[in-house]
């Protein structure tokens, strides 16, 4: 599809260096899917959808190069435009259902909270499922979407690297502490964190019930170019959501490809 020009209806400061941009428009999407977002004159980036009721939103953390995408989107004001195409990819929905009685765990590290908050709200509103949320960040001021999770979860446990809130340590540690047998895990965050979390979750769940949302360098977003290959899967079209079982024998947690296609360690 062509680009759709959208207007930014609202900008929310979520936590340190993290803003949510609410569009003036509702895009039919499912949690885990992403949009290709173009800032003319800057670049186009894949961004996970962070909410969709009533209007679609994306959440971005400011990192890296001053002229790069995240710094540029931070200069956008309410009423300004963005150009989007999508939504693309397989989200979390194919992994929901047919498993009544299982506890649903959300394991979110940093910005990984974005698709998981969207998923938790949808599970709560449409399926009556209240997940157990394990939310981690560097410190208290970078915890993302704590309030959104609180409104729809059964239990919420927090960890911070510096101990400024909740347990001191990594969110992966919370899995060992609060995990329960016969559960389903939804994990999103930096890849090293996801790899460690998936390993810890193996104690409580089958690999087919450990669900992860991945990120890779992307160009087309539509499955054609193959830039986002992770060992025989294209993250943009076969994913970005995969089960841990599917990711066996892939580069998950180990290698990624750069914009030239070169494989380098994570």
């Amino acid at each position: 599809m062509n680009y759709r020009r959208v207007c930014i209806a609202e900008i929310r400061e979520e936590c340190r260096e993290t803003k949510t941009f609410v569009l003036d428009y509702h895009i039919a999407s499912e949690p885990g899917q992403f949009l290709m977002v173009w800032i003319p004159g800057v670049s186009e980036n894949p961004i996970s959808i962070s909410g969709s009721e009533p209007c679609t939103s994306i959440t971005v953390r400011r990192v890296g190069d001053k002229n790069g995408f995240s710094h540029s989107i931070f200069r956008i004001k309410e009423g300004d435009n963005l150009w989007i195409r999508g939504p693309y990819g397989r989200g979390f929905i194919p992994f929901i259902g047919k498993d009544s009685g299982k506890d649903y765990f959300m394991v979110a590290g940093g910005c990984g909270a974005a698709p998981l908050a969207y998923l938790s709200e949808m599970l709560y509103m449409e399926h009556g499922i209240e997940p157990i949320v394990l939310l981690g960040a560097g410190s208290e001021d970078s915890l993302l979407f704590r309030q959104r999770f609180e409104k729809c979860c059964a239990e919420l446990y927090i960890s911070t690297d510096d101990g400024s809130r909740g347990e001191k340590g990594l969110v992966t540690g919370l899995i060992k502490k609060h995990g329960k047998g016969n559960s389903k895990f939804f994990i999103c965050g930096p890849e090293e964190m996801m790899a460690a979390a998936a390993e810890n979750a193996m104690e409580f769940a089958d690999p087919a019930d450990i669900i992860l949302s991945l990120e890779r360098y992307m160009k087309c977003g539509t499955g054609l170019c193959g830039s986002c290959d992770i060992g025989g899967y294209r993250v943009c079209t076969d994913g970005p959501v995969f089960s841990y079982k599917e990711l066996e024998k892939t580069d998950f947690g180990k290698m990624r490809r750069t914009s030239s296609g070169k494989r380098i360690p994570i």
């Binding site: 062509n2 680009y3 173009w38 670049s43 186009e44 980036n45 160009k219 087309c220 054609l224 750069t258």
Partner: peptide, 11 residues
């Protein structure tokens, strides 16, 4: 590395 994004447009 190829060209800068966007490198793809569709209709």
């Amino acid at each position: 590395t190829g060209h800068e994004t966007p490198v793809f447009a569709e209709s």
